[in-house]
Simulated assay, not measured.
Amino acid sequence: MDESQLPGGPDDKGHAAVPQDLTTDHLAVGGETGNGPAPSSPSKGGHANGRPRSRSNSPRPSLNSPRPSIGRRPSAVVEGTEGPTGESKPRDFLMLAILSCFCPLWPINIVALTFSVMSRNSLQQGNVDGARRLGRNAMVLSVVAILGGIAVIAAAITLNRELILKSG
């Protein structure tokens, strides 16, 4: 009998051939063929009681996963000064909005204060993008209220200059 005809003999390229009955396509393990999921042992990352780990495509990790979730950041990272990417937390410009409330442009400065408080609340809830957007709106409205208030005060002084000079 020729050596290439033996189950473990070399093929035409000189490599040792794997017998057909030892390939994973025909190997039966635990009542399943080699095409399905094979049960894994606890030493190779399986479940502690010998069951295989669940293999799902969902972004949420299974309960027995050793890796933490990467979908949401923990609240300690959001409340800190810097996130994992090095970005600082968004500002809410609350002090600027309170300062703008002393200017005579009352509807705009109240809205700026409201946006500032909403930005702070969004950051506490973990919505960093919303907090950044609301903080930017609060800053713009506060600056408009302060500059508008200065313009109103300057216009009032200019128009009433004669009254001020006559009284003094």
Rank of each mutant, 00 (worst) to 15 (best):
P42A: 06
S43Y: 07
S43M: 07
K44C: 09
G46N: 02
A48W: 09
N49E: 09
R53T: 07
S54A: 14
R55L: 14
P59S: 14
S62K: 06
L63D: 12
L63V: 13
N64Q: 08
N64I: 09
P66I: 12
P66L: 13
R67P: 02
R67C: 07
R67I: 04
S69C: 14
I70C: 05
S75E: 08
G80S: 15
E82C: 05
G83F: 07
P84R: 14
P84D: 13
T85P: 01
K89Y: 01
K89R: 15
P90A: 09
R91I: 03
D92R: 04
D92F: 01
F93T: 03
L96S: 07
L96N: 04
A97R: 02
A97P: 00
I98G: 05
L99T: 11
C103M: 14
C103D: 03
L105V: 13
I108W: 00
I108N: 00
N109Y: 03
A112D: 03
L113T: 04
V117G: 00
S119P: 08
S119N: 04
S119V: 04
R120P: 01
R120V: 02
N121A: 14
N121M: 12
Q125W: 03
G126A: 02
N127G: 01
D129E: 15
D129V: 13
G130C: 00
G130S: 08
G130L: 11
A131I: 07
R132K: 15
R133N: 13
R133F: 09
L134G: 05
G135S: 05
R136G: 13
